[in-house]
């Protein structure tokens, strides 16, 4: 499958990645090779095969609804690059 430069730019933008010109070139080629490889799956007849939701055949892993003590706030915030007033501080976002 052909991958366009616009598609690479779109995906990079969604992932908040700033790519250089050289990277955009390279990823377009790489991505095309990966998708083409995966395209081989289209050759298989999978009519009788159930879609896989999870590779491990386990279901219904539940927890009881019990409230437990929360974490120490200082410990939670310990690795935050920036914090203020008991909160994680992030670059200003404006709606």
């Amino acid at each position: 499958m052909k991958i366009s430069r616009e598609q690479i730019e779109h995906v990079a933008n969604l992932a908040r990645l700033n790519l250089t010109e050289e990277e955009k070139q390279r990823f377009t080629t790489d991505m095309e090779a990966i998708i083409t490889f995966a395209d081989q799956l289209n050759e298989l007849d999978i009519k009788e095969i159930e879609p896989t939701a999870h590779v491990i055949p386990i279901q219904n892993v539940f927890r009881k609804d019990e409230a437990k003590p929360s974490f120490d706030r200082d410990a939670l915030l310990a690795n935050a690059p920036s914090k203020a007033d008991g909160c994680f501080s992030v670059p200003k976002v404006v709606e």
């Binding site: 920036s82 203020a84 007033d85 909160c87 994680f88 501080s89 992030v90 670059p91 200003k92 976002v93 404006v94």
Partner: peptide, 9 residues
Amino acid sequence: HEAGEGTLA
């Protein structure tokens, strides 16, 4: 969103 530099979460 309060006054100051950042946004608090």
